[in-house]
Amino acid sequence: MSDVTTTDVQNDVPVVEVRGGLLGFPEFTQFSLIKLNDEGLVYRLQSLEEAAINFVVVPAASFFPNYAPVVDDEVARRFDLESGPEVLLLLVVTLGESFKDSTVNLMAPLLLDPNAQIAEQIIVENNDLSVRTPLMAA
């Protein structure tokens, strides 16, 4: 088990390989991460293979500074979490009717290595997290 420390990305990442795809969408693995606001607080994760496959993601650290996902050792090894903090945790957002109804998935964040341009939607080991946490609870 490892805790995750994170970095930030400020720029678009034109090609990201999401290994295994997002859960429920395993066939789409090539994405582009596009910044939607200047502060780097919102991104669109857009499939390069199918235009209809896209998501809004936000950096976990910006909204949930106390978010401490625990990941299994194999994930930690794949992302080399022990030696470098150069990973970013992104949360998949479900947009609500209005901003305050929007929720994020804390159970299954995306772990992104912006340098290697590799990401993965991981399932964290914490038992007390929800797949639909109000963003405004941050």
Partner: peptide
Amino acid sequence: IEAANREALAP
């Protein structure tokens, strides 16, 4: 998680 991803799809 699959259901949450489907809900989040394509805003």
